[in-house]
Amino acid sequence: MRSQDEEALLEEFERKIEAEEKIEPTDWMPEAYRKNLIRQMSQHAHSEVIGMQPEGNWITRAPSLRRKAVLLAKVQDEGGHGLYLYSATETLGISRSEMIEALQTGVAKYASIFNYPTLTWADVGAIGWLVDGAAIVNQISLQRTSYGPYSRAMIRICKEESFHQRQGYEIMYQLAKGSPEQKKMAQDAMNRFWWPSLMMFGPHDSESAHSGQSMKWKIKRQSNDELRQKFIDQTVPQIEVLGLEMPDPEIKWNEERGHYDSGEINWEEFYQVINGSGPCNHQRIKHHVKAHEEGEWVREAVRAYRAKQAAKKENAA
């Protein structure tokens, strides 16, 4: 049973949500709101960091110095975005090491798209265009999330990410207008990344475990299906400009709805990848653990420096 105090606090919390006022770290919030945010925000942070792997795979093999510099800058951005999001999540009272532990033990998830391999250079284009494109649709909506630090992180990230999608599309455009082999490579990359990109928006609204409560508390502002439709509608004309074949034969303009219709997603594949059986799940976590362990000497050096400075200060006093 709730105490009278807690009733009053909950009422004030719900008033703020209703009035579109942001919730800040020092405000009272229901435990379930805090828990739900930690789950979503840490998952978002993990996705940024794990997402560095499939693209990082091509840095040493980028086809030109310009492409290499661009890809480095993009992967560096993703690392930075992970940092913004981890810091924002820490305002909810969870530590960085707890989050990393949850990621490495499989308790916390990350976007399932990063469990697919990057087989050709065109995949780097397809990721920038489709995967970042889908992420941007989601993140623009999240700029209006009810939790202040999350909202501010999203605003900063969206601003920085504007180049990610354009550089990806530029790669796709060059390949699609290039030799027959290059065009084929672009088509193949798009075909492979199309469906996993649609899966990034999560299960259908009717199947989504956390959606109802998240929408009520305005953690999420638009439903999975609404955002997915928005992505399809903006992407189909971009496919036409590339002159590639549609990755889904059922894509068709529906005059009545004012939207594109499209085929059904293979949900079995979605749940398989989410639950650990995607092509690269094992490799992604294994690499994260390895990088984390190999970085231990840096953390050790930081601790040693801090101890040394503290001792110096004590001696001077």
Partner: peptide, 15 residues
């Protein structure tokens, strides 16, 4: 590092 800006990438008008 102009390539960190969106305007660095020239795309067809329609997109």
């Amino acid at each position: 590092k102009p390539y960190r800006h969106a305007t660095h990438y020239v795309l067809p008008d329609s997109v």
